[in-house]
Computed example of a mutant assay.
Amino acid sequence: MRLVILTQDDPFYLARNIDYFLKKLPPYAEVVATVVFDVSPFGKRESFTDKMKKTYEIFGLPFFIRYGFKYLRSKLDSRNNVRKVLADRGIPFIEIEGNINKDENLEKIRSYKPDLLVSIAGNQIFKRKLLDVATHGCVNLHTALLPKYRGLMPSFWVLKNGETHTGVSVFFVDEGIDSGPILVQKKVEIGNRSQEQLIKDTKLIGMDAIIESIEKIHSGNYELIANDASQMTYFSFPTREDVRAFQAAGKRFY
């Protein structure tokens, strides 16, 4: 099975998880290429300066300092570099211009003859033409129990809202937002985890869930779980007021 990964150059969590994912891939699955998007933590493309300014304004000075130092450390540690992890395994990069759905970008991806697209924090909206490039379409990891908590930063919202459990969902991507039918879902007790620990744990569990999804697609033996739109909730990026409520509820970022 020929896989193309769609991911982003996240400096905090993704590199080690992608390395874990690649090590655990079954022998019949091969990553033939990858697209690495620019990082967009706020759900849209912004300059590095704008990202820094927003992080400070929304999350406050202690958070800004902590993650500023984590960012600098990540630049010095190749284990946190998504491109380095992929390059070390000889996986080709598909360099795209602008939106991934442009015809010229689709042709580049199509040239690798993918059986399946695997989105791991892919941060662009995928249109039907892209989804049809691969024989089996595209699967995506979302670190929440869909149909609840569609959208951005579910780890923040489940803590703020006092949930006792969260989880991961791997689903077939359609043209909606986190709305496609679910292949694998795993429930996780939140306990006293901070947001940082919750992100680390659910992303790692998510890698195993993606591998399980690939195994199911390869065998052709699976039953889809409905991603019921009537039960959905959707959350965008938090505001400064949301962060104050998060902290007032005794929740921790780290």
Rank of each mutant, 00 (worst) to 15 (best):
N140T: 05
Y149G: 02
D132V: 12
H142W: 01
V158E: 10
L145F: 09
L130S: 06
T143F: 04
L159P: 00
L145N: 04
K148N: 13
N140A: 03
K160N: 12
S155V: 09
S155G: 14
L141F: 02
K148M: 13
L141A: 04
D132L: 15
G151C: 10
G137K: 00
L152P: 00
L131D: 11
V158N: 09
L130G: 07
S155N: 15
L146P: 00
W157I: 07
T143C: 13
P154N: 10
K129W: 11
C138F: 09
M153Y: 13
A144L: 07
R150A: 02
L130K: 10
L130H: 10
H136P: 05
R150Y: 02
P154Q: 06
K148P: 05
P154S: 05
V139W: 01
A144D: 03
C138T: 13
L131E: 11
K148T: 12
V133G: 04
R150E: 00
L131Y: 11
H136T: 07
A134H: 11
H136Y: 15
S155L: 08
K160D: 01
T135E: 15
K160Y: 03
A144I: 04
P147R: 02
F156I: 04
L146H: 05
L152G: 01
V139T: 09
L159Y: 06
P154M: 08
N140M: 05
V158D: 10
L131P: 08
L130D: 10
K160C: 00
A134D: 04
A134I: 10
V158I: 12
F156V: 07
M153P: 00
C138Y: 10
C138R: 08
P154C: 07
L145M: 13
Y149K: 02
P154R: 01
H142S: 03
A144C: 14
P154F: 05
N140D: 07
R150S: 05
N140E: 08
L152I: 07
L159D: 00
A144M: 12
L146K: 02
P154A: 06
K160L: 13
Y149R: 04
L141P: 00
A134V: 08
V158W: 11
L130I: 14
L131R: 13
K148H: 15
L141W: 00
L152Y: 01
V139A: 06
V139K: 00
K148S: 15
M153R: 03
R150D: 00
L145C: 09
D132P: 09
P154W: 05
L131N: 06
V158R: 10
A134Y: 08
L146S: 02
V158A: 13
W157E: 08
A144F: 11
G151R: 02
L131S: 07
M153T: 12
A144Y: 07
A144V: 06
A144Q: 10
K160W: 02
W157K: 07
P147V: 04
G151W: 09
C138M: 15
L145W: 08
S155F: 12
T135A: 14
L152F: 11
K160M: 10
L152D: 03
K160S: 07
S155A: 15
F156H: 03
N140K: 06
A144R: 02
F156W: 05
R150Q: 06
G151F: 03
R150F: 05
G137P: 00
R150K: 12
G137E: 03
V139L: 11
V158F: 13
M153N: 11
W157V: 06
L141C: 01
V139M: 11
V158K: 08
W157D: 06
L141G: 00
H136Q: 12
L131M: 11
Y149H: 10
M153K: 08
T143N: 13
